[in-house]
């Protein structure tokens, strides 16, 4: 039951993009088409779950016992970079179609602050191994949900008559604000 709350908390209540403000660059950059948004979300979710496992092991079996918590940021970011590279190589061999579909989005996951941000939050909240995994999954699903919702709206936006100075990113931010307002309705759910 507790795991379920962690999951729902990460997806809806504290949605990584709309409430915690993590991963905004891909949220604004890759949310123009629903399909690419879905692909980006899936790849990010995968990297997040794998990173969750590895950073948890590193934090509690390497950094803490050897008293090295100040190395946390450099170590975590290197793990994430290595993971992304690994996922890229793995996908290229096993599923060339998915690899082609994701294209340049894969390397970009390294600098997605949602991935590093969630590893730091998981350590701060002292989650257990299983809890970290679920938290990573929730974070990824929440990111995907926000991205796909935004992409759906932006596809319709092409036909809207937006005031000229607001066109493009300006209106996208205001829409994100309204989405965020809707998500704040989930507060208190968990």
């Amino acid at each position: 039951m507790e795991l379920f709350f962690i999951f729902i908390g990460a997806v809806l209540v504290n949605n990584f993009v709309l409430v915690r403000f993590l991963g905004l660059c891909p949220f604004m950059g890759v949310s123009k088409q629903t399909e690419t948004a879905l692909g980006m979300g899936a790849a990010t979710t995968f990297v997040m779950v794998v990173t969750a496992a590895i950073t948890w092991l590193l934090q509690w079996f390497v950094l803490e016992p050897f008293n090295l918590p100040f190395l946390q940021t450099p170590i975590f970011i290197l793990v994430i970079a290595a993971m992304v590279q690994l996922v890229e190589m793995f996908l290229r061999k096993t599923s060339p179609n998915l690899y082609r579909a994701l294209g340049i989005f894969l390397p970009l996951i390294t600098t997605n602050c949602a991935v590093l941000g969630f590893s730091l939050i998981a350590v701060q909240s002292a989650y257990s191994f299983i809890q970290s995994l679920i938290f990573g999954l929730g974070a990824g699903v929440g990111f995907t949900l926000a991205l796909v919702l935004m992409a759906g709206i932006r596809e319709e936006l092409k036909f809207a008559d937006v005031p000229k100075p607001l066109a493009g990113t300006g209106i996208a931010f205001i829409i994100a604000g309204l989405l965020s307002l809707a998500f704040s309705g989930f507060a208190g759910l968990v």
């Binding site: 000229k164 604000g177 307002l181 704040s184």
Partner: peptide
Amino acid sequence: VAPGAFITVGFLLAAMNM
């Protein structure tokens, strides 16, 4: 809170464009 941040940036971007 969160929604206000998005809306503020949206309108500031519009102002910068103008």
